[in-house]
Structure formats: structure tokens, C-alpha cells
Nucleic acid binder design. Structure first.
Length: 423
RNA sequence: GCGACUAUGGCGAAGUGGUUAACGCACCAGAUUGUGGCUCUGGCAUGCGUGGGUUCGAUUCCCACUAGUCGCCCCA
């Protein structure tokens, strides 16, 4: 084979792309109703943005970035996630000065992470995400979570689990961090190598370790929820209360630690329980990032958002056996027999299309039988047959494929006839 | 970054150190002279991921590379 698609990327071909279009449409409809507006930021940014925004101790930055130098020697990175770029744009365009607060934004577009591809994991994948900037009302946390849940549910997914947690504010996190260090320090050598490093860099991440999950130190580790200060605790209670009011079931997992540094207060993940999903369970992840705007150089501004991958959403639909209502058949296929009819079929198919009918014709110089077969393959509802006989009588034979029933229609009224039958 | 498995026509899939590389689906043509879905007949890989090596001879054995799948790490 001469050329191959780059590792971890995929072509989305006709037949599959309709599902994407459908999902994207539903996502946009939801955003419209919740009053979130689309923002489109570049596919690449200055590398520094992600170092600062995502955090330079995170896996994303340490080993997953697609970084390159441009011709002027600047370090650029294909965006690994959407929040940092949106916040950059928020600051750069001074959206904090907009009287319409909070600023509610969404994006749908490709993200890039340099990883070994496997089930549900790609080097280029598409994320749909929303960001609400400028409000620290717990109601907006609930709103954002509700949007993600609505997308999955409206598409027909049932086996969903919403898990939430609170990381608290800076003060709470500090207290918890110290408690973790105290807890693990003496016996840290019993944990895996990664955890030993984590103790120094980010002890919170030890709780998320898959290897040491069953170690007794894990079960007895101090829970962040016990270290939330009054304000943080109250905030978390409000978020949970709102979720309950919205009828959204959730479970609290104090070990839910997200992979990005910018989170505080509310964090959440939506997972799939569906069988046959491989090692992938997380469909959507998100949380609050009150310090991020400042980190990127803007005024102190609270923010919250989520991101989800369309690939995984589609995989979840597959796993649950949900079929999306995508159609691809055509309304009418013109079958032309003979030179004269073939010529006449060109303006005819054009006329149908202009009238809003999904129409096609043969371009392979096939015989009538093969043309009918082609029409069948295209799931044409009707076939309009034009030959010398019809031309002489100025009619056309319209055949309904599902019944085989055939009607002779005056050529000049073909559009009206089809529109009538198609409605 | 690490590990396991895999790589044969458009798709699925058998197979062998040596002579024409099964079969199924799809596709094309014909039986059916102007009518699809069923049936029958015929056609359809000088080629077995790429590059080396072993051998008289390799698609078959060995090595490397590339890619895929799954898993680890981590995540969307």
C-alpha cells in the first residue's frame, strides 16, 4: 500500500459519518436550548499555554503532547484538550468585560494526544465540550452536568453512571494534601514506583492509582471530603441538592481525581456500564476550574465545564445496541434507456433536485436491469423509467420499489406526482 | 513508553517450503429481447503488509520495520 493513514487516526466514511452528523446536531440543539454558544479556536496553540493551563506534571503534558517547532522556531502544540484554548480566547478577547455573564460556550472539534491507540483511544479524536465562565453558582455546576446527561440520554443510552466528587478550594486541598503525605509517608515503599513519585509531586493522584487500589493504606487514606472547609462543603452540598432537584442520580466517589491540574471543587465523570466496552469506561469528564483564568493571565474568574469524546459516545451506543435514526436512501432514481432518454435524464434529474427531491441517475452506462439494481442498492423509494416509448408519449413510468407497482405519469407532472407520493 | 496477538482479492476467510493460492460475500456479465430483491451459469489475487535473510526454490522458515487489535500507564 502506497500511503497509510497516520497511526491512531481514522477516516470517517459515508455510512458512518451520518451518525457523527446526527450526534453533533443533537449536541448543538442542546447547547442552543441551554443558551451556550459555539466557539472555534485553532487546532494548535503555543505549547506554553498547555504547560500553564493543563499543568506540567500531568500525563497529558509529560507524554501525550503533539509538539512541533514552526519555521520560526516557536514551539507549537496540537491541542490535547479544549479548556485551555477556550480560556485563552476568553482572556484575549476580554470576554470578562461582556455584560452577559456567565459566558457560556461550547466547542466540537478534534483534539490530539500522542498515545498508543487502543479501544476508545486515538491520537486524533473529537471532543464536544462546554465551558461556563464567570459564575460560581453551584446551579451552573448542575446545569453543565445536566447537559452532558441529556446528550447521552436523548441518544438512547441507558447504562450510565454519574460519579461526582469535590476537591474543595485551595485551603481544603492544602489540608488534605498534608494529611495524605502524613498517611502514606512511612509506608510509601509498599506502594508502586509511580505512587512513590506521586507522594512528592501530587499525592492526590495516589488515590487514583489502579495498581495499589486494594492496598490497605488506600482504604484508610484520608478522604478529601473530610478536609473540605465550611465553604467548600457547603458548595458541594448545594451542587448535590441541585442535581437531586433536577432528577439526576449520582454517586459520590471521594477517590475521583481528575487528570488535569486545574480542577477544584466539583469534579465529575460519566461512565458506561455497558458490556463489551473493553477497558474504556469514561465517556465524559469535567469539573470546576476557578483558578485557571487567572493562571492564563486574566482576572480572577470562576469556571466549569466538561469534555466528552464522540468516538466513545458512538462506541457506547454500539455496546448498548442503540441504532441512530439516520437515513441515507434516496427518493427517486432515474432509469434511462436509449441515447435520447439518457440525454433527457440529465435535465430531468436536475429538475427533481431543484424541487427538493433527493434524486440520482446512472452515470455508468448500465443497462436497464443494472440500473434498477443500482436503484435498489441506493434504497430508492421510486424509480422513474424513461425510454423511447415514454418519450414518444411524453410520459414517464414511475415504479414504487417497495410494492413494485408502476404508474405512467405525464412527463410534465413528474415533480408534483413524486412530491405527492413522498409526503 | 512497555507487553501479547495478528497482517492472504473490495470484505470475510482456508492454505502449502516447490508446479493453476480453496471457499463465502460483494461486484460484473449472461439466462431474462425495457424492469430490482430469488435462482442458475460464467468472470473476478502473475498476488499472500514492507524490506532484508536462509534455500535450488518462500505467501509458507528467520530478522527488522510498518500497521492493526487488545492490555498496562493514563485518560476523552
Amino acid at each position: 500500500m502506497a500511503f497509510q493513514i497516520p497511526r491512531g487516526t481514522q477516516d470517517i466514511l459515508p455510512g458512518e459519518v451520518e451518525k457523527w452528523q446526527y450526534v453533533e446536531k443533537i449536541a448543538r440543539d442542546i447547547c442552543r436550548r441551554y443558551n451556550y454558544r459555539e466557539i472555534r479556536t485553532p487546532i494548535f496553540e503555543h505549547t506554553e499555554l498547555f504547560l500553564r493551563g493543563v499543568g506540567d506534571t500531568t500525563d497529558i503534558v509529560q507524554k501525550e503532547m503533539y509538539t512541533f517547532e514552526d519555521k520560526a522556531g516557536r514551539s507549537m502544540t496540537l491541542r490535547p484538550e479544549g479548556t485551555a484554548p477556550v480560556v485563552r480566547s476568553f482572556v484575549e478577547n476580554k470576554m470578562y468585560g461582556d455584560p452577559n455573564q456567565p459566558i457560556k460556550l461550547y466547542y466540537i472539534g478534534p483534539m490530539f494526544r500522542y498515545e498508543r491507540p487502543q479501544a476508545g483511544r486515538f491520537r486524533q479524536f473529537v471532543q464536544f465540550g462546554v465551558e461556563a465562565l464567570g459564575s460560581d453558582d453551584p446551579a451552573i455546576d448542575a446545569e453543565v452536568i445536566a447537559m452532558a446527561m441529556e446528550l447521552y440520554q436523548s441518544l438512547g443510552l441507558k447504562k450510565l453512571k454519574l460519579v461526582i466528587n469535590s476537591l474543595g478550594d485551595i485551603e481544603s486541598r492544602k489540608a488534605h494534601r498534608q494529611a495524605l503525605i502524613d498517611h502514606f509517608q512511612n509506608r510509601i515503599h509498599e506502594l508502586c514506583e509511580d505512587c512513590q513519585v506521586r507522594l512528592e509531586k501530587n499525592p492526590l493522584r495516589i488515590l487514583d492509582c489502579k495498581k495499589d487500589r486494594d492496598h490497605e493504606l488506600m482504604a484508610t487514606a484520608p478522604s478529601i471530603l473530610d478536609y473540605l472547609n465550611e465553604e467548600s462543603r457547603h458548595y458541594f452540598e448545594k451542587v448535590k441538592a441541585y442535581l437531586t432537584k433536577l432528577g439526576i442520580p449520582f454517586e459520590v466517589d471521594s477517590r475521583l481525581v481528575r487528570g488535569l491540574d486545574y480542577y477544584n471543587h466539583t469534579t465529575f465523570e460519566i461512565m458506561s456500564d455497558a458490556e463489551g466496552f473493553g477497558a474504556i469506561t469514561t465517556l465524559c469528564g469535567g469539573g470546576r476550574y476557578n483558578g485557571l483564568v487567572q493562571e492564563i493571565g486574566g482576572p480572577e474568574t470562576p469556571g466549569i465545564g466538561f469534555a466528552l469524546s464522540i468516538e466513545r459516545l458512538l462506541a457506547a451506543l454500539d455496546a448498548e445496541g442503540v441504532a441512530l435514526p439516520v437515513s441515507r436512501g434516496i427518493d427517486c432514481y432515474i432509469v434511462a434507456v436509449g441515447e435520447k432518454a439518457k440525454e433527457e435524464s440529465v435535465p430531468l434529474v436536475h429538475k427533481l433536485r431543484k424541487a427538493g427531491i433527493v434524486a440520482d441517475k446512472d452515470y455508468q452506462d448500465r443497462k436497464i436491469k443494472a440500473q434498477l439494481k443500482a436503484a435498489d442498492r441506493l434504497s430508492a423509494k421510486f424509480v422513474a423509467i424513461l425510454g423511447d416509448d415514454e418519450l414518444a408519449k411524453e410520459v414517464i413510468n414511475v415504479k414504487e420499489m417497495s410494492t413494485g407497482e408502476q404508474t405512467e405519469v405525464p412527463l410534465h407532472s413528474i415533480v408534483d406526482y413524486l412530491k405527492e407520493r413522498l409526503s
